[in-house]
Amino acid sequence: MVPEAEFRSYHGQPILKRPVWHEPHMPLYLYLGGVSGASSTLAAAARATGRDRLALATRLAAALSGAAGSALLVAELGRPERFLNMLRVIKPTSPMSLGSWILALQGGLTAAAAGSAVTGLLPAAGDLAGAAAAVTGPLMATYTAVLVSDTAVPAWHEARRELPFLFAGGALAGAGALAMLTVPRAEAGPARAVAAAGAAIELAAEHAITHRLGIVAEPYTTGSAGRLLRAARLLAAAGGALAPLAGRHRVLTTASALALTAGAICTRFAVLRAGRASAADPRYTVVPQRKRIYGTLEMP
């Protein structure tokens, strides 16, 4: 890495505000939202191809993780009692506004689909809801990347291209892992495939983030974010590599699924911490911006 040039700051203090979002709410929400999105997509695909055990499990997973994610989101608000203010407006410039609507739809659709599947009532409506959740699902899994990228936080904003893939990959890995655990091995083939592919996408996106972002990649590779991300990488690689083999043995299934889940969760903690670290150190604000204006740190 190129040695950092001298830069000046105001008593070393941050220029930006650290994102106020908390642990574990925010990273778990990212994980659960992703799982819900990928699960509902998988559920629709499973239903369409007649894999009812898989469909039932993934419908349930989509509904429950969606509900848990919403609960975390509400808890994260400074004024939780005002959660419904989210639905006061539809604001195209606000990924959180659009995301809230996506979440609302996803929550409703997955709940309907899961409810129908569990109770056996209104199967047609349940299928319709399930099919619709295949549209909201992928958005649910990726809008959160837009949500974090659409900020001034350097580690997030600069990773705006990779984050959607990182999150989509993690969503697939997480949903696949959950399905692997909850569906008999014989029927879990698609889940294993999804999980393995998800892990691969996750790893590719991580690689891109840590190699394309220049100085702003530092927060992803150093400190607690760096440690988490390294762990996530190992877990994703191991879980992903095991997944295709997992059909052979329960233990392998469990190991793979847990590794993938843990990997996806670690990644999200890493993303939050990298974001915080990049906002807290003025270098990540000043150096790229000065390079942008002057091509160098020095005055031209």
Partner: peptide, 14 residues
């Protein structure tokens, strides 16, 4: 305001 906190990291001036 419901305290979602989104505006906080969205301000390029902190």
């Amino acid at each position: 305001c419901n305290g979602c906190g989104y505006c906080v990291p969205a301000c390029p001036f902190g």
